[in-house]
Design a protein around this nucleic acid. Structure first.
Length: 757
DNA sequence: TTCGGCTGGTTTTTT
DNA sequence: ACCAGCCGAA
């Protein structure tokens, strides 16, 4: 019990409260991970069986870390706690119980790409216009429905929803949803939302199963409760209905996943659902300086919807928050990279003390470049993850299909990969034949002689290949590594990549090897009892962005990631970049006021990641879709309490000289093929630098780009750096366009020439 | 069937 | 800038 000594009063109360429902409202940096860790350790010391504790976290990594910390307190038993994300825990349970719902234990898990691909084919088959039925939109609607536990049938029958869809001219979404659900089921596959949705169905329709787990889990804990959706909430509610020992930890101010169905309402409902609820607030921030906490509070107070809370700190006042203004996104990156360089040199910090946080993944590029130039090692969290790369998905699809021949998406991926002369026409024939004979696609493929007399050699070869893999798995009971290794070779995937001598080809080849290494590790690890390929596939498809393995010297690496992935982390120095209107807050969010509040909470989360120092930067122009556009500082900068701010010496002070509105250019509304335009640019501008004469361009005499000079634009290239002269001195400048005006339409009514150095 | 060239859309965040 | 889908040519 010595761990109690380091806790403050509310923390201690939370740890000691073990019976009955408990809600912990934990402000940013208030030590909620400690509380959860100690509470779990305490429960076990009190004699609760680790197997009877269910601890749901947001990422597998968070679970791993907590398991590690609990292990330090109570030792080996920590291994036995049921700890993981909602998705991974309930995928595991569905593996056991899925047969009751008509799935086999080797069901596939469709990732977002698979879901989209399936939807694309359904939309096509239904002869719907894919410009109207955009895959993302459809998938979002279906996902939202599932997360609210609306079945395909009740979606279809619900007049309110259908009217809504009809008003939006997408009246067929109900029908698409129905087909989609059916096809997933026939493919023996669940998508991400299904893992929760089907769990709910399981617990609703099979009370014996529910009962079993209700009695199994004596204690249920939910971390990041503010980010759970209705579907997740109902699962936990059902599971804890018998024992009533449910403990949720969250912070409404840090709810940033509403777009995924997370519902703050869960926190409010919680009080209603559990009348004898104990609520504990953790309000003291141990992480950050007063300046950072103050700035964060000044932001979150602008939101109207929030629980009463008073986050304070007794830490030192600390440095003011620095606002960095840069003229371009690449300058922004340079300034920050050199600030990191200085911080390491002068203040003796490690690379891992720094984080660069941005709103969108696309922003990482300029920072990577700038960091590389200064030889600063970095790591990127998220973005295109290893497991989303084409070659990896290809091999995994083979493995998926070997395990589950009903997996339609895996089949589509591998049937002609590497090229074996089975094109779209043949595949269409196969599915027609399957439908006519009322059998599965695999039935047709594996018995192709029965259905087609001749010319099916390629298909037969494919079927034989898969059959030989199946024997390895089912008869010889080879482990995941042996199977994967063999499949990679025998399928021809490896050979194809090996013969590709381009840089990308080499990288892909290595990626496959890397995947095989990962599988080897999985097989060799003592923690995994079941070494089958099916189990490996399962664990892989639920890896989250934050879970990726780190390698190399972790201490030296600066972290780059989106704010969303930064949740739950902390860094000595945080650079919060790209604070520009339309980027952060994102323009997609500005449509409705409540969404603006979510963006503001995102800003709050970002600020509170910083322990010692916080830098906020914005650029006045930025590349987007391959061209430069001008930007305005974010409204969020104005919302910060100025008493904590300092305008940085780094880049911001410099006045921009000669900000020239260019004269209107008319008569170019007609379209010019883009590629032609690009070729023109390449031909006309062999170097990035062009001289233009000083007589045309001085601060008092703006350069006038006239009609003929549209060609000049192209000659310079968009956003390319120009050398110009101002008052006899050589300067650099770029051409930037007003928001939303692009090269493609050549509606260049206004352009600006911006001097950048 | 495959390949290459062209076009249009895209970027919010993630399990 | 990048990608996926489409179309025509081989």
């Amino acid at each position: 019990m010595d761990y109690l000594s380091g806790l403050n009063e509310p923390q201690r109360k939370a740890v000691l409260h073990t019976e009955g429902p408990l809600m912990i409202i934990a402000g940013a940096g208030s030590g909620k991970t400690r509380v959860l860790t100690f509470r779990t350790a305490h429960l076990i010391e009190q004699g609760v069986d680790p197997f009877a504790i269910l601890l749901l976290t947001f990422t597998n990594k968070a679970a791993g870390e907590m398991r590690h910390r609990i292990e330090q307190v109570i030792g080996k038993q920590a291994k036995n706690i049921w700890m993981g994300t909602f998705h991974s825990i309930f995928a595991k349970i569905l593996r056991f119980e899925g047969e009751k719902l008509g799935y086999t234990s080797s069901f596939s898990i469709y990732d977002t790409d698979d879901s989209k691909s399936l939807l694309r084919s359904i939309i096509k088959e239904m002869n719907l216009d894919d410009k109207v039925y955009k895959v993302n939109l459809v998938l979002n609607r279906i996902s939202a429905a599932k997360n609210k536990l609306i079945s395909p049938q009740s979606y279809f029958n619900n007049e309110v929803i259908r009217n809504e869809d009809r008003m939006a001219k997408v009246g067929e979404i109900g029908a698409i949803y129905k087909t989609y659900a059916l096809r997933c089921f026939q493919a023996n596959a669940m998508d991400f939302d299904d893992l929760l949705y089907q769990t709910n169905i399981l617990f609703r329709d099979h009370l014996d199963v529910l009962n079993k787990y209700q009695h199994k889990f004596k204690q249920v804990m939910v971390d990041e409760f503010q980010d759970t959706n209705v579907s997740q909430y109902l699962i936990t509610k059902k599971l804890s209905a018998v024992n009533q020992n449910i403990c949720v930890v969250g912070d409404d101010a840090q709810s940033i996943y509403a777009f995924r169905g997370a519902d703050i309402q869960n926190i409010l409902n919680f009080e209603k659902d559990y009348p004898d609820l104990t609520t504990i607030k953790l309000e003291e921030n141990y992480r950050s300086t007063q300046a950072i906490v103050g700035a964060a509070n000044s932001i979150i107070s602008k939101n109207r919807h929030q629980l009463q809370k008073n986050v304070f700190t007794s830490n030192e006042k600390g440095e003011d928050i620095e606002i960095i203004r840069a003229t371009t996104d690449s300058e922004e990156a340079r300034l920050i990279a050199s600030s990191i360089f200085e911080g390491k040199q002068r203040d003796g910090l490690n690379g891992s003390d720094f984080a660069i946080l941005y709103r969108t993944n696309a922003q990482s590029r300029s920072f990577e470049e700038a960091l590389r130039k200064l030889n600063l090692p970095y790591k990127i969290v998220g973005g295109l993850s290893f497991y989303q790369r084409k070659e990896i998905k290809d091999l995994l699809s083979y493995l998926r299909f070997v395990v589950n021949q009903q997996d339609e998406e895996a089949f589509k991926r591998i049937i002609n990969l590497p090229k074996r002369g089975i094109g779209d026409t043949t595949i269409a024939k196969i599915s027609v034949t399957a439908a006519e004979n009322n059998v599965s696609i695999w039935d047709v493929v594996s018995n192709i002689q029965q259905y087609s007399g001749k010319g099916a050699q390629a298909i037969e070869n494919f079927a034989d290949l898969i059959k030989s893999f199946k024997i390895m798995v089912e008869v010889d009971k080879k482990d995941a590594y042996d199977v994967a290794n063999h499949v990679a070779k025998a399928s021809g995937l490896l050979r194809e990549l090996y013969e590709d001598k381009t840089v990308e080809g080499l990288a892909r080849y290595q990626n496959i090897q890397e995947l095989l290494n990962a599988i080897k590790q999985f097989v060799d690890s003592e923690e995994n009892e079941d070494k089958s390929i099916a189990t490996f596939l399962q664990s892989v498809s639920l890896l989250t962005n934050a879970d990726q393995e780190e390698e190399g010297d972790i201490k030296e690496k600066v972290t780059l990631m989106t704010i969303h992935s930064a949740k739950g982390l902390e860094f000595k120095r945080v650079f919060l970049v790209g604070l520009e209107e339309d980027l952060f807050p994102s323009q997609m969010m500005l449509a409705s006021q409540s969404d603006l509040e979510e963006e503001r909470r995102l800003f709050y989360v970002a600020i509170t990641r910083a322990e010692k120092r916080l830098y906020i930067s914005y650029a006045e122009s930025r590349y987007q879709f391959g061209r430069l556009k001008t930007c305005e500082p974010s409204r969020f900068i104005d919302e910060l309490d100025p008493q904590y701010l300092r305008i940085s010496k780094l880049g911001g002070k410099k006045e921009i000289q000669g900000f020239k509105p260019v004269q209107k250019v008319g008569g170019f509304a007609q379209k010019t093929p883009v590629n032609q335009g690009q070729q023109l640019v390449q031909k006309a501008a062999p170097s990035n630098y062009q001289h233009i004469s000083s007589s045309n361009f001085t601060p008092s005499n703006p350069l006038e780009l006239q009609v003929e000079q549209r060609v000049e634009h192209q000659k310079f290239g968009f956003g390319k750096i120009l050398r110009i002269e101002i008052n006899g001195a050589e300067r650099k400048a770029v051409i930037a366009f007003e928001k939303g005006v692009g090269e493609k339409t050549l509606l260049l009514s206004f352009a600006k020439l911006m001097v950048i150095g």
